[in-house]
Amino acid sequence: MSQPTILRRKTKDDDLPDEIALEILARLPVKSLLRFRCVCKSWYSSIATPNFIYNNLLYCKCNDHNPGFFIHMPKTTCPMVSFRRPHSQICTVASDRTFETTSEFRIPFSFQSGYPHFVGSCNGILCITDFVTSKSKDVYLWNPSIRKFKRLPDTCLTQLRTVRLGFGYDSLNNDYKIVRISRTCAKPMLPLEVEVYSLSSNSWKRVGLGISWRSNAVFHKFNCTLTFPFVSGNLHWMIEMIEGGGQERLFTSIILSFDVNSEKFKELPLPDDEGSCITKCLTSFKEKLALIKFGYGVQPHSLLCSIWVMGDSWNKLRVLPIENLTDFIGFTNYGLLLVQKRSRLVSTNSELERKHKSVLIDPETLHEKEIQVDYRLDVAAYMENLALLDGANVVSY
């Protein structure tokens, strides 16, 4: 015969101490934490504190069982593209190993031009601006996992400049920063002007370049094939310039690196490579700065893709032959190369049309996997995070 259950009143001594409860909560996924905010007032307020959000971010990054994701949307290269693609306001989250879709988000704000463009992504916070970057005033920080966004205040610099933006995370101060670099087309070429936005202060400030500028540069432009990579606490821009004049003209490229923590610039060298180069761009490869160079291959319609990775110095990782390449999109977090290729002609409405295909390539095995996307992609890393949960001037939707 079973013993009768003895009931006793729950006492205060049965409760977990608040610090232990919060330590347990910090290890939970974002969706669970949003629900648990409704349990009591103390949890509601504690989960939104900067210290809790920071601890939750650290646990998410250290969890080896978390699958990797990235987010993508159609890349606008021509104003007419958006009219032909009404889904350009949709962002898709996919696995960075298989490209299988896990969820979709509609961008909850709009631009006057209608052309959203990724500035970058840090810890699941997306920075998005207008495609027409030289005239855009609107910059947004967006956290789709908690359905909140924030429009940044306007800057004080004139808008009659060519502008490029970078987005990074200040790990020393647990702050998110946007760097705005602008240049004029005046002659002689003036030094770059720089502003930095801090999420914690919700304001912009001027920052000096702090390094010598090429006084004999007659022309320079940003290489903006991809979003400017944020690697190891630094944002990176590649600037292509012409120095001197007449027959003494010299075509050079430099890499400008900005430490988001110290807010200091430095110049990095490019790798010494004498091979042919049609085009090159900066990106990140497995959390390291990478330079991608494309040169002509032996076979018709083939290119050689050289992957350089920065450690203590530049090292050439490998050279990949790629046929019928039309667009280099980037690397997934897992290290797979994402490109678009020209495929065969197909008949549509009694007309022959050239179709393109997107392909994931494993740089080690050269194995290719075609993915079901027939348009150019704008991509960024993605993870869930609580940042922007209860910040100032943050909009919920």
Results as ranks from 00 to 15, higher is better:
residue 33 L to P: 00
residue 328 F to A: 00
residue 392 A to C: 14
residue 149 F to H: 11
residue 251 F to Y: 11
residue 207 V to I: 13
residue 365 T to R: 04
residue 184 T to I: 07
residue 220 H to C: 12
residue 88 S to Y: 08
residue 166 G to H: 03
residue 155 T to H: 10
residue 134 S to Y: 12
residue 385 N to V: 06
residue 257 S to H: 01
residue 163 V to W: 02
residue 314 W to A: 04
residue 112 Q to A: 08
residue 239 I to S: 09
residue 342 R to L: 10
residue 141 L to E: 01
residue 289 L to D: 02
residue 232 S to E: 06
residue 136 S to K: 08
residue 372 Q to S: 10
residue 377 L to P: 01
residue 342 R to K: 15
residue 129 T to K: 13
residue 303 L to F: 12
residue 358 S to P: 00
residue 96 D to F: 00
residue 144 P to N: 09
residue 164 R to M: 13
residue 198 S to A: 09
residue 145 S to L: 08
residue 77 T to C: 15
residue 297 G to M: 07
residue 257 S to W: 05
residue 94 A to N: 01
residue 295 G to Q: 10
residue 212 S to C: 14
residue 273 D to N: 13
residue 14 D to H: 15
residue 101 T to H: 04
residue 94 A to H: 00
residue 290 A to P: 04
residue 246 G to V: 06
residue 43 W to D: 01
residue 157 L to V: 07
residue 63 N to L: 11
residue 10 K to R: 14
residue 386 L to I: 09
residue 331 F to K: 05
residue 111 F to N: 00
residue 291 L to P: 05
residue 368 E to K: 02
residue 142 W to C: 02
residue 352 L to A: 09
residue 301 H to R: 12
residue 101 T to C: 06
residue 358 S to E: 02
residue 252 T to S: 11
residue 26 A to G: 07
residue 240 E to N: 15
residue 135 K to G: 11
residue 37 R to P: 02
residue 362 D to P: 03
residue 162 T to I: 07
residue 111 F to D: 03
residue 63 N to Y: 11
residue 106 R to T: 15
residue 257 S to V: 04
residue 84 R to C: 14
residue 225 T to A: 11
residue 355 K to N: 13
residue 264 K to E: 15
residue 391 G to D: 06
residue 78 C to N: 11
residue 261 N to V: 04
residue 256 L to D: 01
residue 155 T to M: 10
residue 162 T to G: 07
residue 76 T to W: 13
residue 110 S to K: 06
residue 61 K to W: 06
residue 154 D to H: 11
residue 261 N to L: 01
residue 89 Q to L: 14
residue 362 D to Q: 05
residue 347 S to V: 12
residue 261 N to P: 03
residue 357 K to A: 01
residue 370 E to Y: 01
residue 66 N to S: 14
residue 381 A to C: 11
residue 304 L to A: 09
residue 325 L to S: 10
residue 98 T to S: 14
residue 350 S to I: 01
residue 357 K to C: 05
residue 381 A to E: 11
residue 341 K to F: 05
residue 206 R to V: 08
residue 271 P to R: 06
residue 225 T to N: 08
residue 64 D to M: 13
residue 16 L to K: 13
residue 368 E to R: 03
residue 34 L to W: 03
residue 108 P to W: 08
residue 147 R to K: 15
residue 19 E to M: 14
residue 283 T to V: 09
